[in-house]
Design a protein around this nucleic acid. Structure first.
Ligand code: MN
Ligand code: MN
Ligand code: ZN
Ligand code: ZN
Lengths: 140, 140
DNA sequence: TAACAATTAACAATCATTGCTAATTAGCAT
DNA sequence: ATGCTAATTAGCAATGATTGTTAATTGTTA
C-alpha cells in the first residue's frame, strides 16, 4: 500500500474525496503488518476519532481493496483480515495467540495431481505456534 | 473416511446410534471427492430421503469431523466444505465453476521469514481454471 | 420391551458483512 | 468563495452459514 500522501493523490484522481476518516485509515493501515480485521481497525480508529462509523471503515477498506492498495485474506479466524502488503507472500497463523505473520516462499511448491488445471494463484496458510507462545508453554 | 460398514461399528462403539439418516450420509460421503457443503449434502440426501433435516446433516458432519473421519476445509467459497479424504493434501479451486480438486505436493515448500515459528500444519489453496472451464473459454 | 438417543419442526440467535434511508456535513472544482 | 455532490452518520434491516433450543415424536439397541 502506498503512503498516506500518495493515497491522497490517488483518491482524488479516482474522484474520491479525501476525508479525515479516510486519512486516518490510510495512516492506520500504512506499514501495518498486523493483518487487522475491519473491527480491530474500527477500534483503533475510534481511539483517535470517536464517532467514526464501522460502516465507513468497511467502505474505505473496500475502496482500498478495489484500488489494489490492500488485499483481503482469509486465514480461518472467522473474519476477513486486511493486508497492506500486496506483494506475493503467504501467512502463518499462531494457534496460541492468533497472530498472523508474513511468509515468503523460496521455491514454488511442485505439485502432482493437477494435470488439467492452470494455476493463477496460490496461497498457503501455515498453522503452528509463534515464538512467544512456544515460550509461554515452556515456562508453564 | 472409513466405509459405511466400518462407520456403523465405530458409531455404535462411540455410543452413537446408527440411524437411516446417518447411514445415508455415510454413503453419500464415502469416496466423495466433490468437497460438498452441508447444504449440497442436504440436497443430495433429500433426493433419497425426503424430510431429512439440515440440522441432522450438520450434526452428523460435526460428529464425523470430531471422530476424525472428515475434515472441514475453507477455500473461500463462503461455506465450509467437507472432505472424507483426511490424508495430507491441498486444494485447487476453479474460479470458473468453483469445483475443488485435490492436490498433492511433491516437496514441502521451503520458507523464509519464519524464524521463530513452529509449523504444525500447512494448507495451500490454489486458484485458477480447471480443464473444462479453460476449454469453455477457448471455444467462446 | 424399556430407556433414552435421535430426529424433526419451528424457531431464535449469532457473527461478519452489506444494504438502505434520510439527515447532516464537508471536500474541492470551477 | 460557493455550490454541487460525495461522504458520513445513525439507525436500522437483511444476508447466509451455522449453532442453539424446545418439545413432540420416532427409532435404536442393550
Ligand atoms: Mn501479509
Ligand atoms: Mn480434498
Ligand atoms: Zn502466538
Ligand atoms: Zn472449472
Amino acid at each position: 500500500m502506498r503512503s498516506p500522501e500518495e493515497l491522497t493523490v490517488a483518491f482524488r484522481s479516482a474522484g474520491l474525496k479525501v476525508t479525515p476518516q479516510r486519512q486516518l485509515l490510510f495512516r492506520l493501515l500504512h506499514d501495518n503488518s498486523s493483518h487487522p480485521t475491519a473491527d480491530s481497525l474500527h477500534s483503533a480508529a475510534t481511539a483517535v476519532m470517536p464517532g467514526i462509523s464501522l460502516r465507513t471503515v468497511y467502505q474505505t477498506l473496500t475502496d482500498l481493496t478495489q484500488m489494489g492498495e490492500l488485499q483481503s485474506i482469509e486465514v480461518g479466524s472467522g473474519s476477513l483480515r486486511f493486508d497492506p502488503n500486496v506483494s506475493d507472500h503467504h501467512h502463518a497463523v499462531c494457534d496460541g495467540c492468533g497472530d498472523v505473520h508474513d511468509v515468503y516462499i523460496t521455491k514454488a511448491p511442485v505439485l502432482r495431481g493437477l494435470d488439467d488445471f492452470s494455476v493463477s494463484d496460490a496461497h498457503i496458510v501455515y498453522r503452528g505456534q509463534c515464538g512467544a507462545c512456544s515460550a509461554l508453554v515452556a515456562t508453564k
